[in-house]
Design a protein around this nucleic acid. Sequence first.
DNA 1: ACCTGAACACCGTTCAAGT
DNA 2: ACCTGAACACCGTTCAAGT
Lengths: 184, 184
Amino acid sequence: VGRTRIDPGRLVVEALAVVDRDGLDALTLSAVSGALGVGPSALYTHVEGLDGLRRLVALAATENLTNEVRTATAGATGADALLALGAAYRGFARAHPGQFASTLRRADGGDDRLAAADREVTEVFVVVYAGMGMTPDASHLAARSSRSAIHGFLVLEHTGGTSPAHDREYAHLLDTLQRGLGAR
Amino acid sequence: VGRTRIDPGRLVVEALAVVDRDGLDALTLSAVSGALGVGPSALYTHVEGLDGLRRLVALAATENLTNEVRTATAGATGADALLALGAAYRGFARAHPGQFASTLRRADGGDDRLAAADREVTEVFVVVYAGMGMTPDASHLAARSSRSAIHGFLVLEHTGGTSPAHDREYAHLLDTLQRGLGAR
DNA sequence: ACCTGAACACCGTTCAAGT
DNA sequence: ACCTGAACACCGTTCAAGT
């Protein structure tokens, strides 16, 4: 009676596991609490209901995405950096479709941490373009444009399904960005 | 007893109304059946459960989007056509956030009609680029790239919220596409 | 401070019954 | 063929009770 304590870290881990294994719709308080070995109502101490759980997952997923794309661009510079970034972004969306989908939900509560985490993703793009010698303003615009393009391609691929033809189309997208942004 | 018949057309209209008024999470069989003046179980004659209702909404939303962007590009040509298309796409996402969000869900049932409707959106882009003198293959690649970019920008705007700075960033995105695709 | 467990409202889904 | 209404399972949420 009241013996099983919840580890907040494990809560996130289990929630991400649910989403990656069974999809975004399977993210319920019951599923996560069950995995933790507690009752559903026990989660209310750590999370603001179902919406809070969804925000938590979206936050963790966004942070995971940032880590992936950041390490991918760590070594490369210039055009290679954008290709590496694009490959890592796509790799994340494919390997973790549930996490990626959790990102697509509107943040109703106006979660500042989630907004900040999302900015971190764009920041990786900014660093790449700044490394090419662009001004801060130009880097920001280039980052937002290329992130939007990559993100949109992957959203469409996520909802519509994968196809072999997509590889060529994705390469064309990245090439179009390079050309359009005057990035060398 | 068994007197109120369901009009399939009204079913879709009410479902879209729910989504646009109360958001995607409010799309339930109960909400729609209530608006139609019938019991929830009555919907099973017309729709394959909640997932079927979601697919129906996604399909109608996609068709509505197609109509919007198609009429917007009807008069224009070349660069103006893409700007008009981009403005219409964004206008739809802003005016009907619930419908736009319904589009972001993965089509689990492998709905052929939904996939075909989605291709119709891209087709509007194809027509624009073909009108610029591009080959069918080049038009297809350009269409997919620019649709991805626009779609992605609007997804990020949808999840993250609107900001005055976005107008300039969106214009930059469209300009980047024009340049990158060599479209005049 | 934190979890249990009962309680309640609500929703999706099935199905026998009616028309 | 199509809707009703009862029935059931499941989930979110609240809250008094225990530790």
